[in-house]
Amino acid sequence: MSISDTKKMSENKLVSFVIPHKGREDMLIATLESIKQQTIPAEQYEVILVSQNENVSHTLFEFEQHITLSIIYNDQENSISHSRNLGAASASGLYLAFLDADVSIDVSWTQKMVDGIENKPDTVLMFGTQVISDNARPMEIIRTCLASATSGTYTESAPGANLFLKRETFVASPGFPEELRTCEDIYFTSELNRFGRIYHYPDAQFVHLGEDKSFGPMFKKEIWRGQSNIASTSGRPIPLRELPSFIVPFAVTLGIIILLLCLLYSQTNFAIIFSIIAGAPLLAYTFRLKKLVGNTVSFLNCLRFYLVYFPARAIGTLLGARGAVTTSSHK
């Protein structure tokens, strides 16, 4: 469907952007600014901001002069899934575009998404490709390259930074699982495989403004993300490709710890065994990442990434294990 074909629509919009938000507004403003710059006419889309702040600034209200903006206030204790479902329930668009509040989409992102999903009738969900920002540091380059590794292919799930689908598809789905604090996007998009295919669209690009810039914040964030690892598997089959994400962090982390203890107590034979247990997957992931990033990031920084990532994921999974036991269903 072309933009011109939708001009007859009087009440409904072509696209409803649903943006959950909590905390600082600086990156949210940049997100709204990128939406305002879209090549499709402003009257053809709406923005539904679901804020978990007590109020919003005057700067945000100024966007009402340029775009159709609705602000819904949500309780701070609710999950991001709750905010997304709440925003979707208020949407009038033929399509839903779920955006994080810290992304900047390319000016033609919306038009390309509309054209792309209409030209792929077997595709029920599309998500855009993350690109590197100007003057990006090694951590951001690594994150971006990992996020865009599947660009141009069909996938079994998708991260929630930018998701595009028909509203009728969302209505037919279970929606986002409100019990999960993290991994809710993977659970939701995995469920959509029942309706059709998921495509990682290379032409619709965005910059993740809130991407990790250094190893310290990344360590804390991965602990938080890892806490829903087990809960996110409840009620769905686990693809084989996901198994390493559960096994490898523990193999590497425990392997390194036991290796150091063996070296401390001069247990050479055991030290060799656990150096292989920890080192084999660690080096395999590092070499794969180095191939992905090319000359933009050194091998040492690739190794540092996984030396931080795997322990953080292991810690997060352990912390979330108790909560996962009590999670019996997803709404």
Rank of each mutant, 00 (worst) to 15 (best):
Lys7Tyr: 14
Lys8Ile: 13
Ser10Lys: 15
Glu11Gly: 15
Lys13Ile: 02
Val15Pro: 00
Val15Asp: 03
Val15Leu: 07
Phe17Gln: 03
Val18His: 04
Pro20Glu: 12
His21Ala: 06
His21Lys: 03
His21Arg: 08
Lys22Ala: 04
Met27Gln: 15
Met27Leu: 15
Met27Ser: 13
Ala30Glu: 14
Lys36Glu: 07
Gln37Asn: 10
Gln38Phe: 09
Ala42Arg: 14
Gln44Gly: 04
Gln44Leu: 14
Glu46His: 04
Val47Gly: 01
Glu54Asn: 09
Asn55Gln: 11
Asn55Cys: 05
His58Phe: 08
Leu60Gln: 06
Phe63Cys: 06
Glu64Leu: 00
Ile67Pro: 03
Ser70Asn: 10
Ser70Gly: 02
Ser70Met: 01
Asp75Asn: 13
Ile80Gln: 10
Ile80Arg: 09
Ser81Arg: 01
Ser83Phe: 02
Ser83Trp: 04
Arg84Gln: 06
Leu86Glu: 08
Leu86His: 05
Gly87Trp: 02
Ala88Ile: 04
Ala88Lys: 00
Ala91Phe: 06
Phe98Thr: 03
Phe98Ala: 05
Val103Ile: 13
Ile105Ser: 02
Val107Thr: 12
Ser108Asn: 12
Asp115Gly: 03
Gly116Asp: 13
Ile117Asn: 05
Ile117Thr: 07
Pro121Ala: 08
Pro121Asp: 12
Pro121Ile: 03
Asp122Pro: 04
Met126Gln: 12
Phe127Gln: 08
Phe127Val: 04
Thr129Ile: 01
Thr129Tyr: 06
Gln130Val: 00
Val131Ile: 11
Ile132Pro: 01
Ile132Arg: 12
Ser133Arg: 14
Asn135Ser: 13
Ala136Cys: 08
Ile142Asn: 05
Ala149Arg: 14
Ser157Phe: 10
Ala158Val: 05
Asn162Gly: 04
Arg167Phe: 04
Ser173Gln: 07
Pro174Thr: 10
Phe176Trp: 14
Glu179Arg: 14
Leu180Ser: 08
Asp185Cys: 07
Asp185Lys: 10
Asp185Glu: 13
Tyr187Phe: 12
Asn193Ile: 01
Arg194Glu: 09
Arg194His: 11
Gly196Leu: 05
Tyr199Ile: 01
His200Pro: 01
His200Cys: 03
Pro202Thr: 01
Asp203Pro: 00
Ala204Leu: 02
Gln205Met: 05
Phe206Gly: 01
Glu211Tyr: 07
Asp212Ala: 09
Ser214His: 10
Met218Val: 03
Lys220Ala: 15
Lys220Leu: 15
Trp224Tyr: 15
Arg225Phe: 14
Leu240His: 12
Leu240Phe: 15
Leu243His: 12
Ser245Cys: 07
Ile256Val: 14
Ile257Ser: 05
Cys262Trp: 11
Ile273Lys: 03
Phe274Ala: 08
Ala278Ile: 06
Gly279Gln: 08
Leu283Val: 11
Tyr285Phe: 08
Arg288Met: 12
Arg288Pro: 01
Arg288Thr: 11
Lys290Glu: 08
Gly294Thr: 02
Asn295Ala: 15
Val297Tyr: 05
Ser298Met: 03
Leu300Asn: 07
Asn301Gln: 09
Arg304Gly: 05
Arg304Lys: 15
Arg304Asp: 11
Arg304Gln: 13
Arg304Glu: 10
Phe305Pro: 00
Tyr306His: 11
Pro311Cys: 07
Arg313Gln: 15
Ala314Val: 01
Ile315Arg: 04
Leu319Asn: 07
Ala321Asp: 06
Ala321Arg: 09
Arg322Ala: 09
Ala324Gly: 15
Val325Met: 14
Val325Phe: 14
Val325Gln: 13
Thr326Pro: 00
Thr326Met: 06
Ser328Gln: 09
